[in-house]
Design a protein around this nucleic acid. Structure first.
Lengths: 123, 123
DNA sequence: CAGAATCCTTTACGATACTG
DNA sequence: CAGTATCGTAAAGGATTCTG
């Protein structure tokens, strides 16, 4: 494939980008990488996510088939979220980005600082 | 790294996710993969992006050090955007996502349809 | 043709309080 | 503790118009 028309036009590609085009999807998938986790646990792990947004995001991931919700009867309530098989396939690409961040993250921050200092900053 | 605390806590990881956490960043980087391109060209290639958003996004990518802007004097104006070396390093992870989309995109769409049919859809 | 300027709509996200 | 309900804000994205 030499032209990228084929790639960009394909709605599956757009779908993949859209999956990432929000603050928490990727973070949550990643937070679930080691196995089932309870909501409170996830909130701790992630930090900075409100209960409402956590639920919303998990619901979205659930209807995308990436996450499974399991509720155990009883009180206090106990709920666990797990990655589905499909969800687990997402870990690799996400990890690729993680690796990229470790290698090049500081370059981006440096560029950002430079831009800001030059007055081209997005502040 | 067994726990993901280290990963999620690192601000570089968050930075990487934030880079993707918008509709057009990844798409634009990808659209520039084959070399310099002019804005009009990009708009064609991508489809569905308004001139304003295109400029905004390119500016942001520029101040992140991922894209370079080159303007040639004269009329009509001619401008070209190119990936920087840093920007090019992003192609691999992005491609990983593209590959994922080709393999699993339909599964997501199927899950979405299923969820919608069950009344759990996010409509 | 590049892109700045305006205006507008949507929605993602956050804070908080409340229920089972 | 899980999750919902409300409310509020900020920002992203889109449509359009105008200028060098």
């Amino acid at each position: 494939m030499t032209t990228d028309h084929g790639f960009l036009a394909d709605c599956r590609a757009r779908l993949a980008f859209d999956l990432l085009a929000n603050t928490w999807n990727a973070v949550l998938v990643w937070a679930l990488r080691d196995g089932p986790a309870r909501p409170g646990e996830l909130r701790e792990r992630i930090g900075g996510i409100s209960p409402k947004v956590l639920t919303e995001t998990l619901r979205r991931l659930q209807s995308d088939g990436l996450v499974e919700r399991r509720a155990y009867a009883g009180s206090p309530p106990r709920v666990e979220y797990t990655l589905t098989g499909l969800g687990r396939t997402l870990l690799e690409p996400i990890e690729a980005f993680g690796a990229w961040a470790f290698e090049h993250g500081e370059d981006v921050m440096a560029a950002r600082d430079r831009a800001e200092a030059t007055g081209h900053g997005r502040d």
